[in-house]
């Protein structure tokens, strides 16, 4: 007995709006951009860019940004933002490495000391994230403000730990394996005849991304995250525990910062408290935005973020190789970010 009038309105609404092509582009545009950029990059370097080794290097260099960006995707879907990820990263890395050094100095076995240090890094990341989460959820602070505080404060703690200097790893061989080692990649060898490995960092990044995408689209947490981001009040009325969902999101973000910090410090086998992770929050946010996640919350995709990370990495790579002054990379990145949002924003 539903009146025909309402049915007519429905079909009219469905057929209006952006055309099919526009909608397809809105959805897959970031992939198209990636492929085009990849082709351009390859042409620019006479086919060299497409080499497995080059691609592997790019993935490896961007793994820790990528892990941050995956966490940032969840935070942004929840309707929030986390400006403190770079500072959480350096704090977690500094704390973990300091503990490792201390344990080695007390003549623990190197392996155990590194293991404890790794755990300490991740845990301190989670703790830093929980400070953000508690301030936002129970202190009712705007995420921007709460994490702006974290951005300033967390790095300051790391600086104080090392008098703003560098913390060198006392582990001569074990710790660095995490950031430098890798699995052999199907017996491929590079031009020098050495086997090409796919680094642990890359594997970790991809595994985390796949897991996060799966949780986002398949788990109760992911569903509730989208509901909270789309309309927090409606989520509360529907019986979603909004506080728990948001708190968990900032804890996950903290854990991601801890892991990213580990990868970076392990690659250098040291932590420069004044430099590590400086400004990395903007790269992470940029990758999320390029990937098509809405800054207003309520909609997002991890796979888009992964593509966004690759696009940013490729641009940096192209600029380095083509001999353009690296000072120009910011201008190109900025243009890409703005362009990505222009193209993908909903035309409704």
């Amino acid at each position: 007995m539903v009146s025909t009038a309402s049915t007519v309105t429905n079909s009219a609404k469905l057929s209006s709006g952006p055309s099919r092509v526009a909608r397809l582009f809105e959805r897959w545009g970031v992939l198209v951009a990636f492929v085009l950029l990849f082709a351009a990059s390859t042409a620019l370097q006479g086919g060299e860019f497409a080499s497995i080794e080059n691609f592997r290097n790019m993935l490896n260099q961007n793994a820790s940004i990528g892990i941050l960006a995956v966490g940032m995707t969840l935070v942004i879907i929840s309707g929030g933002i986390d400006l403190s990820v770079g500072s959480m990263l350096v704090l977690a890395a500094a704390f973990g490495l300091t503990l490792t050094n201390e344990l080695i100095a007390r003549e623990w076995s190197e392996g155990t000391a590194v293991g404890v240090g790794i755990a300490a890094s991740v845990i301190s990341g989670v703790l830093a994230g929980s400070i953000n989460g508690v301030l936002i959820v129970f202190g009712r602070l705007a995420p921007f403000i709460a994490t702006l505080g974290g951005l300033v404060a967390f790095r300051s703690v790391a600086l104080a730990m090392a008098d703003a200097g560098e913390i060198r790893s006392a582990s001569s061989s074990v710790f660095a394996v995490l950031g430098r080692g890798g699995f052999p990649f199907f017996g491929f060898v590079n031009s020098a005849g050495n086997p090409i490995t796919i680094t642990y960092a890359t594997v970790l990044f991809l595994a985390i991304a796949i897991l996060a995408q799966w949780f986002l689209s398949r788990s109760r947490y992911g569903r509730q995250l989208v509901a909270v981001g789309a309309n927090e009040v409606a989520a509360r009325y529907a019986g979603v525990s909004v506080a728990s969902v948001r708190l968990r999101t900032y804890l996950i973000m903290g854990a991601m910062a801890g892991i990213a910090g580990l990868l970076q410090s392990s690659r250098m086998n040291s932590v420069s408290t004044s430099q590590l992770g400086l400004g990395i929050e903007l790269d992470a946010i940029a990758a999320v935005v390029i990937g098509g996640t809405s800054l207003r919350g309520g909609f997002g995709r991890v796979w888009g973020t992964v593509v966004g990370v690759l696009i940013l990495g490729m641009i940096a790579n192209m600029i380095t190789i083509s001999g353009i002054s690296p000072y120009w990379s910011g201008a190109v990145k900025g243009a890409v970010i703005v362009l990505a949002v222009l193209v993908q924003r909903s035309r409704s």
Partner: peptide, 19 residues
């Protein structure tokens, strides 16, 4: 504003309280 998530699908709305 409160009863439904208008930007989300009918199915997600239908199952949210009893997820």
């Amino acid at each position: 504003g409160r009863g439904l998530h208008v930007s989300l699908s009918a199915m997600i709305n239908c199952t949210l309280p009893t997820l």
